[in-house]
């Protein structure tokens, strides 16, 4: 019980602190990393959703499931998918950040003044 509570709290905390990191960010690299932090929260949340005390890894032999319970393999597949998405988006956003540094001469979001109103 307590472990579950801790896991869910950590997940919520990571998402929130990542989002607040973007709000208060003064550097676009920091913004992108904060976004990744927020996403890490979703990993913890998914793993916590599939966790079962005393269960083993969900690797089943040819004979099928034995007597011992396994943790939910579905959430782990979801986390893997999620990590792939995260890698793509982070790479794309960092590439844009590099290009912004070249074209705007700054990576401080407070100094990007091209779009408004």
């Amino acid at each position: 019980m307590t472990l579950t509570v801790v896991a869910w709290t950590v997940a919520g905390w990571l998402v929130l602190v990542g989002a607040l990191g973007i709000v208060r960010s003064r550097d676009l690299v920091h913004t992108v990393v904060a976004l990744s932090v927020a996403q890490s929260g979703t990993y913890v949340l998914l793993i916590a959703a599939g966790f079962q005390r005393g269960a083993t890894v969900p690797i089943l032999g040819a004979g099928g499931a034995g007597s011992s319970p396994v943790v939910d393999p579905l959430v782990q597949a979801m986390v893997l998918t999620d990590i792939v998405v995260s890698a793509t988006v982070t790479a794309l956003l960092l590439a844009l950040t590099i290009q912004i540094a070249k074209r705007h001469g700054t990576v401080d979001p407070d100094e990007l003044r091209a779009l408004r109103g």
Binding site: A11, L28, V32, A38, L92, L93, L96, R103, H104
Partner: peptide
């Protein structure tokens, strides 16, 4: 320059929306 800023903002905001949906 503008295009980059718009694209980055779009990316960050929509990704965060997607992560909330995933939660």
């Amino acid at each position: 320059p503008r295009s980059l800023q718009g694209g980055l903002t779009f990316g960050v905001v929509n990704s965060l929306g997607a992560y909330l949906a995933l939660c």
